[in-house]
C-alpha cells in the first residue's frame, strides 16, 4: 500500500532542509473529483499532497515547463525539483535523461507504484455514473474502485474505470526513483498490451482509412496534445508555422525561410500530416502516458498513433522506451538484423 503520509513526510523534509526548490505532486482538485498538479514550495504545503486513482497528470511535463520557465527567467536556483512519479511518469523522466534534457542532479524522484492499479479515465467515470458527479475515487483492492457520490458510495470493477493504458500496463511501477512508495507489482495487467490499438489495427484497411479520416477531419489543431506532452519540449515545433524561435543569432534569411511543412488550414490531410509527424517524432520516445488522448477536445484517439510505433519498436527492434537513460534512442541506433524483408 502506498502510504500518502510517507510521501507527505518526505516532501516536508525535502522542503524544510532546502534540498529541493519545490515539490511537484498532486493535490485535491479545486473543481471536481480529479486531483490536480501541485507545485509546493513551503514545507507546510506538504500536507495537501494526495495519492489516488485520479492522479492522472504526467508530472514530468511540469518539470519540463519549469525548466523552460527558469531558463527564460534566468533563475540561478540550481537546487533540484522533487517529483512524484508514477510508472509512466518515471519512464518519461528516463527519456528526458536519455536526451540530456534534464540532468539526474536536477530531480529527486519520489516514485509511486500503482501497485497493479492505475488511474481512471474521467470519461469512463462520467459514463459509469451516468453524469452524476463523483466526490471521491479510491482503489478497493486491486480489482475494484470505490466511487463516492452525493447519493452514496458504489464499488465498480477497476476494469471499467481505469484508463486504457493502465489496463494494458505491465509495469505499473517507477523505473527510476530515489525513494519508492508502494510495492513493485510485476506483470499485472487487466487487458493484453496494445489491446486498444488492436481493436483499430485489426480493422480492414478501408475501415481504418475511414476511421482515421473521420478523426483527422475533426481535428481543430488546437495542439493540446503537443502542449501536454512532456516529450514535446522543443521551443519551436517543426510542424508549426505560428511560433518561431528567434534568437540574437537568427538571421533574416532564417526568419524569412521557415519551412512550412504543414499549412495552418484545418484540412484533413494537413492535420493527418501533423499527427503522423508527431507520432514519428515520438517513436521510441513516447512512454504511453496517454495524456495527449485525454486532453483532446474532440476525442481523437491520438494515443493509438503512438502505440502503433511503440509496438513496432518492441516487436521489430526489441526497443522499450524509457528503460535505460544510457541507451541510444530508437531511431539513432540500428542492428544488423533489423527487418529487411520489406525492402525490395
Amino acid at each position: 500500500m502506498v502510504a500518502i503520509e510517507d510521501i507527505r513526510a518526505r516532501a516536508r523534509t525535502l522542503l524544510e532542509s532546502g534540498e529541493v526548490r519545490a515539490v511537484l505532486g498532486y493535490q485535491r482538485g479545486s473543481a471536481g473529483t480529479l486531483a490536480e498538479p501541485a507545485f509546493l514550495t513551503e514545507p507546510q504545503q506538504a500536507a495537501s499532497l494526495v495519492w489516488d486513482p485520479t492522479c492522472i497528470h504526467n508530472l514530468a511535463l511540469y518539470l519540463v515547463n519549469e525548466k523552460k520557465r527558469q531558463r527564460t527567467q534566468r533563475s540561478n536556483d540550481k537546487r533540484p525539483l522533487a517529483v512524484v512519479a508514477k510508472g509512466c511518469d518515471s519512464r518519461a523522466l528516463v527519456v528526458l535523461l536519455q536526451e540530456n534534457h534534464i540532468d539526474r542532479s536536477e530531480v529527486v524522484i519520489l516514485g509511486v507504484s500503482c501497485e497493479g492499479g492505475g488511474v481512471i479515465d474521467p470519461r469512463k467515470l462520467t459514463r459509469a455514473l451516468a453524469g452524476r458527479a463523483a466526490t471521491t475515487v479510491a482503489m478497493d483492492g486491486a480489482d475494484a474502485i470505490r466511487v463516492g457520490t452525493a447519493s452514496g458510495e458504489t464499488t465498480l470493477p477497476a476494469s471499467e474505470l481505469l484508463a486504457d493504458r493502465c489496463l494494458e500496463c505491465a509495469r505499473a511501477y517507477p523505473e527510476l526513483y530515489d525513494t519508492l512508495y508502494g510495492d513493485k507489482a510485476e506483470g499485472r495487467s487487466y487487458s493484453p498490451r496494445f489491446a486498444a490499438l488492436n481493436t483499430v489495427a485489426e480493422k480492414p484497411l478501408d475501415e481504418r482509412r475511414a476511421y482515421w479520416n473521420a478523426h483527422f477531419e475533426r481535428c481543430i489543431r488546437c495542439y493540446a496534445c503537443r502542449a501536454v506532452c512532456p516529450m514535446c519540449y522543443c521551443d519551436e515545433c517543426v510542424v508549426d508555422s505560428t511560433e518561431f524561435v528567434v534568437t540574437p543569432n537568427t538571421s533574416a534569411d532564417e526568419k524569412a525561410n521557415r519551412i512550412r511543412w504543414i499549412q495552418r488550414s484545418p484540412d484533413a490531410s494537413e492535420s493527418a500530416m501533423y499527427h503522423l509527424v508527431r507520432a514519428m517524432h515520438l517513436a521510441g520516445r513516447c512512454i504511453d502516458c496517454a495524456e495527449c488522448e485525454r486532453v483532446c477536445p474532440v476525442n481523437i484517439p491520438v494515443r493509438l498513433l503512438n502505440n502503433v510505433l511503440e509496438r513496432e519498436a518492441l516487436e521489430a527492434f526489441e526497443y522499450v522506451p524509457g528503460t535505460d537513460p544510457g541507451l541510444p534512442s530508437l531511431i539513432s541506433s540500428f542492428r544488423d538484423g533489423d527487418p529487411n524483408d520489406f525492402v525490395r
Binding site: V200, A201, L205, D206, E207, R208, R209, A210, Y211, W212, N213, A272, L276, A279, M280, A283, L304, L305, V308, L309, E312, A313, A316, F317, L330, I331, S332, S333, F334, D336, D338, P339, N340, F342, V343
Partner: peptide
C-alpha cells in the same frame, strides 16, 4: 541502416492509418 529502421516505422504508421 538508420534509414531502414526509420522507414520501417513510417511504413507501419502509414499502413495503420489506412494508406
Amino acid at each position: 541502416f538508420f534509414a531502414r529502421r526509420r522507414i520501417y516505422l513510417v511504413q507501419k504508421l502509414l499502413q495503420f492509418i489506412g494508406v
